[in-house]
């Protein structure tokens, strides 16, 4: 005789519990946290280097640089002026989870931070399942990728609040269509805030910086 035992439990309930704790800690200190996600090579670290150089004297920015191996990204961000950069090497894992953030968060003095940026592992699938306690996810895509990426990875684009399109200086050198990528992204998520930038030439970055300033002041 088979009997059903109701469980109704989220598989990631432990992660969600830790993420809720992190979110509460950050809110108590008025720290805005952003979770940066993208494919490998879209330019997460480049965008963060630019952002640090431009805003380091205005905003107190903490960074958690997630990487599968090496602390290369963390080193680049320190060189760009990052005062509070914490590397997080996953040792093979394809995403960051709340437990890893819980481990490195004590390295920061939250009372002296305005903004905490978490650079996730380059991957558009797995990181979408893990809440890190962030205020919002920022997804990056670059013009050297397919403009159908939002349709291929709907979970990530649905859960993100902001999309930054990087490498717009290379538009026209591939079949990437700027209007099409925006339409594809808005089909998944009509409320997505979109920035078009080139970390190489600096084009479009001022709007991104202004948005970050407003976000922190809010």
């Amino acid at each position: 005789m088979a009997t059903q035992v109701k469980i109704e439990k989220k598989v990631l309930s432990e992660n969600d519990r830790l993420a809720a704790d992190i979110r509460q800690q950050l809110q108590q200190h008025g720290v805005v946290a952003l979770n940066f996600v993208s494919s490998p090579g879209s330019g997460k670290t480049s965008l963060l280097e630019k952002t640090l150089s431009a805003l380091k004297d205005e905003l107190r920015i903490g960074l958690i640089a997630g990487d599968v191996q090496t602390e290369n990204d963390a080193n680049r961000l320190r060189l760009a002026g990052g005062q509070m950069v914490q590397p997080l090497v996953t040792g093979g894992a394809c995403h960051l989870d709340a437990k890893m953030i819980t481990r490195v968060l004590p390295e920061f003095d939250l009372s002296r931070l305005d903004l905490l940026i978490i650079e996730n592992v380059g991957n558009l699938v797995c990181p979408s399942s893990y809440d890190l306690g962030e205020a919002m996810k920022v997804v990056l895509i670059s013009t050297t990728e397919g403009d159908d990426k939002p349709l291929k990875y709907p979970g990530m684009f649905r859960r993100s609040s902001v999309m930054v399109i990087n490498k717009i200086d290379l538009l026209g050198t591939s079949d990437f269509d700027l209007e099409r990528v925006k339409a594809n992204a808005r089909q998944i998520n009509a409320d997505l805030k979109i920035f078009e930038v080139s970390c190489r030439t600096g084009e479009g970055l001022d709007a991104w910086y202004d948005w970050l300033r407003d976000l922190v002041r809010r």
Binding site: M1, Q4, E8, K10, V11
Partner: peptide
């Protein structure tokens, strides 16, 4: 992403 129920004999 939920564990809905277990079937037990």
């Amino acid at each position: 992403l939920n564990i809905a129920y277990l079937e037990v004999e």
